[in-house]
Design a protein around this nucleic acid. Sequence first.
RNA 1: CGGGGUGUGGCGCAGUCUGGUAGCGCGCGGCGUUUGGGACGCUGAGGUCGGAGGUUCGAGUCCUCUCACCCCGACCA
Length: 487
Amino acid sequence: MHNVSGGGVRGFVEDLIDQEDDFDRWYVDVVKRSELADDAPVRGCKVVRPYGYALWENMQAALDRRIKATGVQNAYFPMLIPESMLNREAEHIEGFAPEVAWVTHGGNQKLEERLAIRPTSEAIICGMYARWVQSYRDLPILINQWCSVLRWEDRPRAFLRTSEFLWQEGHTCHATAEEAERRALQMLEVYRDFVETELAIPVISGAKSESEKFAGAHRTYTIEAMMGGKFWALQSGTSHDLRDHFGKVFDIEFLDSDGQRKHAFNTSWGLSHRTIGAIVMVHGDDSGLKLPPRVAPIQAVIIPIWRKEDERETVAMHVSRVEQALSGVRIHVDRRDDKTPGWKFNEWELRGVPLRIEVGPRDVHSGQAVVVRRDTREKLAVSLAEMPETVPTLLSQIQSDMFDSAFTRQRERTANVDDLAELYERARTNAGFSLAWWCGDAACEDSVKTESRATIRCLPFDQPAGSGACVVCGRAASMLAVFARAY
RNA sequence: CGGGGUGUGGCGCAGUCUGGUAGCGCGCGGCGUUUGGGACGCUGAGGUCGGAGGUUCGAGUCCUCUCACCCCGACCA
């Protein structure tokens, strides 16, 4: 047996800074060292590496299933949008203009009309819907696309805010305002269920204030999650009721059953790969990532261990028996022989694999394996016979424990605040979310932002009965708002 | 776009003040010994110092210009 220098488990995680010392640097380090993503040659762009992309694919599959279950179909619209089309909705273009990238040349020819690289696709999709809709019988149209969009960002952060990012954007078109509103809320609920169930991240569902609304929307709904470290908020999915703003400017007109010509009502809703960043920041610890089992690319990593050459063979045979016992589990066997087990333990912890299964000579003799949880580091000797039952059970236990601890943190770091100084103090000290009464006046909202950099993340659907005094101006207020700093 | 910082093998850095043959650690290849919480020995490969110009017998080091990236602000899914 080799001599282990150093002390506890943590001592071996070299270079990775502790969360509380510098959370932002911890985040950058973990993303890079776990091989989720790497820097690209173009500023603001990142390469999503195979491990990160496998995670995204699992997330996509789980969300895509839910979206389709509501009757939505997938399609694909072009990346290039003519300037005149993007410009039609005034608020929309005003909101996005600063971050749109333009194609001005095709080959050697200067284009007569420059083309926007989509920052979002309302314009081109509504433009197409106008052609497809003649009658109320053509409605609703329920379409989603998986794609990337481009927004020229001044200050990028891996996954959270990159110039090009991966997402899905759904765009629906309806005959009535009520139906569109219902759809917007329905899709927000799909997001809530997806993020809470698959990613083990608790969220607060609610509406955005006027000033935080999507450019061109009638109402914007959001799910907000509390990150670890500095307890800032991250908008993790949004859904917009566009009312008939886009229907009017894009001439989506139809003849209704009552014989009247009417403009259609639209929704749009999106969830991006920034939720990968949320997984990192919500669940990660000083040893690295902690991936929720339901979406983890590898759910259990098997580490063969041997001392003598003759043990190598028997261990390998035992490993394949373990693999067979776990046919329904996403398994990876780490057969590298140039790394010690200790090195592998640390690497797979850094990469957030929920379960580690150690298979060594002792396990061959006892017909078992040592199963270790990433979240608690609890070790269990599990017999081969128990394995098909025990491992999946452990995985779902980890999933729900991860949700519970994130939920507990969110609850403990959320406080009701009725004093403005306390609100500012909480923002300044990164104390978490503050729930406070707000009169609805944008001036009050704005002064909080100026003074403390905290913003209204959402007006939760879940409101207490009664009313109170606005935390800023003291006037009567009927809404409780979540104030927090945000990524 | 403002304020600050950094550019030297894949990564992290020293060397710059005071010019004189480009170094260290990790990583990487080969061979051997190893493997239950980041093993070790031997051996080998790999850079002309972000870029351009200048001063000098001689520039990683001094001067001028320039580019890129990072951090902190304003703006944003």
